[in-house]
Write a protein that binds this DNA or RNA. Structure first.
Lengths: 250, 250
DNA sequence: GTATGTATCTTGGTCTGACCAAGGTAAGAT
DNA sequence: ATCTTACCTTGGTCAGACCAAGATACATAC
């Protein structure tokens, strides 16, 4: 079995103990010899096989845990899991806890994701997706006068679009950015209320996106989505320039 | 000082040792009482203060390490870092490398990223970027007859495009997908050699992308990029149909 | 007074061996 | 056949120890 060879190579490889073990497990996970659902051998045995002490092995296991790759279950064992997106949210939370200057950059990624997703949505969306989009659309109309729930409705619509695209990867990425973006936009949301043309923008744009998807026109769908983001960006810009003063002045 | 109170509360909080410590540090990091550049107190002291043993503390520290939040420097100490997006690399690698049927899905994300990036590139690329793209382009021409280095050249060109887009988020995401995509495409690369029209496609398409960027035409740039991917997808499809047997055999 | 070199201290990196609590399991009782 | 129970396994944790090398202070040389 190749495992023995790998372990031998592992023992000799220079890295610090933790690095060795982490790299070893990583390799195994990536190569597929450890698949989701598998249970690792007991820590004591594994540590012995890898030539490290149990604390070190556990460091590596913990590291994999925060990545969502494995799950350490008390008195049961370490189970290989298929990482879910919740980890990403953790990460983004840490990553952007302080600095807000990355927001615009993350926004670029969100635009990328959604523009691709809306194309796919135009091709792949099912009737069920149409219904969800329709629902989200009506929610936007209903909540048009409320900043908070309006923001949520907006978010839900976009999310529905991405889901209609039927690409898990895009969904995961989108969810990851949404968290941080929502957090950052919450503060500005009231500002947006100021502009009156905004309501039309919110309702009409989303309806156009919806229509494009229903119309099975990827090209058009993306164009509309892009315009939507461009206008939104413009609004934000004006809000930023106008500053809090003019806002409070009404 | 509130720190003592927190520690007291920590001692009493029910969670398992690791969870306690991790949550404690997490809170400190997010709250900002631990800021990038700060050096944590020595492990021994910290462990004592938190009422856990060193191995447990180290588990928590390692966990934060893989999230890029802190950096453990040998014989120096644990330093709080501003997490950069490169951590995502690890995650995506794990997240998507497991099932091979996700490849096509990841490809959608790559298309999303690159189409957005090429737009930004058309707007933001500097002369230096032009040069890099030019260089990558000539590499593609040079290596057109070699599957291996040709693949690398292709990859490098696309990477240069994304870099020219000047969005770190897009760059990181792209890098993350590239890894797994390259892994999966390596096997098929020889097949692509079969089609002769492929050479023209490779050279001409990339040149058109380059021209669109230099011409500062985001719209056109994206369109060309999209066509490029569509054709590439077509090639892959034909290769898959023509040679699935020989692939699985190899 | 400055520069240099060395002894020492600090700090992470790691190991060993041990104890606990509770899930699993199989032997034993009903 | 079913239920009980004792035992074994397994993760969770701790205590104390040793090592290597960066950091530092102090003594020495210039």
């Amino acid at each position: 079995m190749t495992a023995d060879l790998e372990i031998t190579r592992l023992r000799e490889s220079g890295g610090k103990g933790f690095e060795k073990v982490f790299a070893f497990l990583r390799e195994r996970l990536l190569a597929g010899s450890l698949r989701p659902g598998d249970r690792l051998i007991p820590e004591r045995d594994l540590a012995a096989q890898l030539g490290v002490s149990r604390p070190i092995l556990r460091e590596a296991l913990r590291a994999l845990t925060v990545l969502g790759v494995v799950e350490i279950r008390d008195r049961v064992g370490t189970i290989v899991r298929r990482p879910d997106l919740s980890v990403l949210n953790d990460f983004f939370t840490f990553a952007f806890a302080q600095q807000s200057d990355v927001i615009d950059d993350v926004m670029q990624a969100r635009i990328a994701i959604e523009c691709q997703a809306v194309r796919l949505a135009a091709e792949r969306a099912t009737v069920s997706d149409f219904e969800k989009l329709q629902l989200a659309l009506s929610r936007i109309v209903e909540t048009i006068d409320d900043a908070d729930s309006g923001g949520v409705a907006d978010f839900e619509f976009h999310r529905a679009v991405v889901m209609a695209g039927k690409s898990e990867t895009l969904m995961v990425l989108h969810d990851s950015m949404s968290g941080i973006l929502m957090r950052s936009h919450q503060g500005r949301r009231e500002l947006l209320q100021v502009f009156d043309t905004m309501k039309t923008y919110l309702i009409e744009d989303h309806r156009r996106i919806f229509d494009a998807i229903v119309g099975r026109d990827p090209e058009h769908a993306e164009r509309v989505m892009r315009e939507h983001f461009a206008i939104g960006d413009d609004f934000r810009r004006r809000a930023a320039i106008g500053g809090s003063r003019s806002v409070s002045a009404g």
